[in-house]
Design a protein around this nucleic acid. Structure first.
Length: 286
DNA sequence: GACCAGGACCATT
DNA sequence: AATGGTCATGGT
């Protein structure tokens, strides 16, 4: 197959905009009717038409499997939805409202770093921090014609070489020493992000929890969004409220209680269910 | 101007 | 084990 700068991926039952705005990625920008971002060092322009997503790059690509993997375009969504509890009206309402919402498969370091920066921040602010960090310390990446340059998320090595003050100037506040500490552990070889893919989910979780700035919520985000462990179920303030409201008559429950409930109730793709609930309660008006 | 945000961590009970 | 305070910063 010849190398090309454009590919059309089959994407039935796929809502790219919902996916990009559902709080799992923070570095993608809306440009006209498209989305622009960086995947494994390649600047990509994505535009959705009826049942395909058209990807364009600056450099010709012989192998586009990196984009298929990132978008999880070969996941048969109906198969995932079929594993949800069908007698749960709250979850089914979220699915109905967010048709085509997907989980992406992100780079582990970028995902880990982004969520270390996410604690008690609104999504718009997380996006701002990630953008500033990338513009100041990330590599410049070419985009296809008509688009300006993009910036990759800075590598762990680059971040590890910075000072806490330089990080704080990106407005990340008290999260700066957490990000710096995690980056330096990676560079020191004390934590290998690419190694967790082979671990059982419980062990991967334990290793993530040992990092500075990583608690249960952030660990679960990385397990789900970067490693694709389908039962990982991040519980933030929104999801905690939704679970308490929907399944505990509005009584606020301790996080561990909610974790147990989610593991039992939502099935083998609980992570997807979580993403539908999260996106639905955040986007419904009123 | 309060109140809150895809929390984690540490010191007290 | 379970609370409570603290940590920056900016949106609503």
């Amino acid at each position: 197959m010849a190398a090309t700068t454009e590919i059309s991926l089959p994407a039935r039952n796929y809502d790219l905009t919902a996916t990009m705005t559902s709080g799992q990625v923070f570095a993608w920008e809306r440009v006209a009717d498209a989305w622009v971002g960086v995947v494994q060092g390649r600047g990509v322009h994505l535009r959705q038409s009826a049942e395909t997503i058209v990807g364009r790059t600056a450099e010709p690509q012989r192998d586009w499997s990196w984009l298929t993997a990132f978008l999880q375009a070969d996941v048969e969504l109906n198969g995932v939805l079929a594993t949800f509890p069908q007698d749960d009206p709250h979850l089914q309402a979220a699915v109905a409202a967010c048709r085509g919402l997907r989980l992406l498969r992100q780079d582990p370091w970028e995902c880990l770093a982004s969520f270390i920066l996410s604690s008690t921040k609104q999504i718009v602010q997380i996006r701002q921090i990630v953008r500033t960090l990338s513009e100041r310390f990330g590599e410049r990446v070419p985009l296809p014609d008509g688009c300006s340059l993009a910036f990759a998320f800075p590598t762990a090595r680059r971040v590890a070489a910075l000072s806490e003050a330089e990080l704080r100037e990106c407005k990340m506040g008290f999260r700066a020493p957490y990000l710096l500490g995690t980056a330096r552990r990676i560079v020191a070889g004390e934590f290998a992000p690419e190694q967790l893919q082979q671990c059982p989910v419980a062990e991967a979780r334990t290793r993530l929890l040992a990092l500075p700035g990583v608690g249960e919520k952030i660990a679960d985000c990385v397990l789900l969004f970067a490693y694709g462990f389908p039962t990982a179920f991040p519980i933030d303030v929104w999801v905690a409220r939704a679970l308490s409201t929907f399944y505990f008559r509005g009584r606020t429950m301790p996080p561990e209680r909610l974790r147990q409930f989610a593991a039992k109730h939502f099935g083998p793709n609980a992570g997807y269910a979580q993403q539908y609930l999260f996106h639905h309660i955040r986007t419904r008006r009123g």
